[in-house]
Amino acid sequence: MDEKFASPALETIDQLHARHRKELRDLQSRITQKKKNATKKTRKGVNEECAELERVLKEQQAEDIRRANGDIPPLEPEAEPLDDEDQDDGLVPAMDAVSISPPLAPPPQQPPRKEKEPAQKQNRHRARLARRAAEAAADADAAASEAAAQPDRRASERAAMERVFRENSLREKDIEPDGHCLFSAVADQLGVVGIEVLPATAAAPAYKAVRREAAEYMTKHADDFAGFLEEPVGEYAARIRDTAEWGGELELSALARAYGVEIRVVQDGRTEVVAPFEEGDVGGEGGRKTLWLAYYRHGYGLGEHYNSLRSVKEEG
């Protein structure tokens, strides 16, 4: 915005200076009023306009002084004190013009150089590793030699069992190692000797009938078994009847008595006999049927296991 500030043709130097001071005061009042009325949106334009007015006035006054006496420099205006709001208005554009540069990133640090270990220290480390490897290999060889020197229990058990099988003309029938093997083997043997067992179905396999028979006999004759148990006979018998609890000597004894048969168990090269009657009981051997079972301690991964043994002569 261009505004002309006219000056009278004839003025003394003092009058000229007085007029200049008045013009500066008037302009300062106008600038103050403009800034007070400015908004945030118009403040920048108002500041530019005020700066232009000051520039034009100073140029006009300088020209007046040159006309009067070119050697007299223009006077600085006597600025009126500004209130706090005006001072803030003047600071805002000045601060807007200031830009703060981000701090320079420090140069990347170089990793400290690792001094090379002396050759002698490295050689000692290699020697120590080699010694440990040699010791580990020696321990492995010793363990292998010790294992090779130990007897193969599974093989020796199998050889002893097969010897008894040959002596008695027996052939082994494998039974599933599922926790029911004793009862499944007895069920198979009962079928071989012609003793009826409830028909086996998918829902009620034969071993369940044998389990139930053993449990019922033990419950009815609790006094005969209580001394061998650490719990009530009824609770133990319920587990034998309803779960996959492994069977053993007590169950073989109960089954021998319940079915009136003799059970012969081949184990580790010898034959154990479980008779249906204790010594002194009334009973005879006439017509007594015999069941043959094979009992393993080491031949199966799950541990103890029973198989059924059938006569080779009868099958032939």
Rank of each mutant, 00 (worst) to 15 (best):
R128F: 10
A130V: 07
R126F: 07
A142Q: 13
F183D: 00
G194E: 10
A155D: 10
K116I: 02
A202F: 14
G179E: 05
I195D: 02
K114Y: 01
A147N: 14
A203Q: 15
A204Q: 15
P205K: 07
A127S: 13
F165I: 01
G194W: 14
M161K: 00
A127V: 12
V164W: 03
A134Y: 06
E117D: 01
K121V: 13
A137Q: 15
Q120L: 13
L198T: 09
A187D: 01
Q120V: 13
R171Y: 09
A160H: 08
F183R: 03
A136Y: 12
G191K: 08
E157Q: 09
M161N: 08
S145G: 12
A185T: 05
K116N: 07
L182C: 02
H125E: 14
A187N: 03
D141Q: 10
A149N: 00
A140V: 12
P177I: 04
D188N: 11
R154A: 15
F183T: 03
E196R: 11
R124G: 00
A136W: 11
F183V: 00
G191C: 11
G191F: 12
D141E: 15
E196G: 07
D178F: 02
A147I: 02
D139R: 11
S145C: 02
E157F: 03
R124T: 02
A143W: 03
E172K: 13
P199H: 01
P177D: 12
N123L: 10
D141I: 12
E146C: 01
K208R: 15
P199R: 14
P177W: 01
H125L: 13
P205L: 08
K116R: 15
A148H: 03
G179L: 03
D152W: 00
A137F: 04
A144C: 03
V193K: 14
A130G: 08
V197D: 01
G179Q: 05
I175K: 07
M161H: 01
R126E: 11
D174F: 04
A142L: 14
A136F: 00
S156P: 01
P151H: 01
E167S: 09
D178I: 10
S184N: 05
A134I: 08
Q122I: 05
A204D: 14
Y207N: 03
R128C: 05
N168A: 08
P199T: 13
Q189M: 11
M161A: 08
E162I: 07
L129Q: 15
A149L: 05
A206T: 12
E172M: 08
A160C: 11
V192L: 00
A119L: 06
N168C: 02
A203I: 14
A187C: 09
F165G: 06
E117I: 02
E176T: 11
V193I: 13
R154N: 14
M161F: 02
D139S: 06
N123H: 05
L182V: 08
A155L: 10
K121Y: 04
K114L: 05
E115C: 08
F165Y: 14
L198G: 06
H180I: 04
P205H: 07
L182F: 02
S169W: 06
D139T: 12
E117N: 06
P205C: 06
E167N: 12
A147Q: 05
P177F: 02
M161T: 01
A134F: 05
V193P: 04
S184E: 14
R158H: 12
E176Y: 10
P151D: 00
R163K: 13
E172C: 13
R153L: 07
A138L: 10
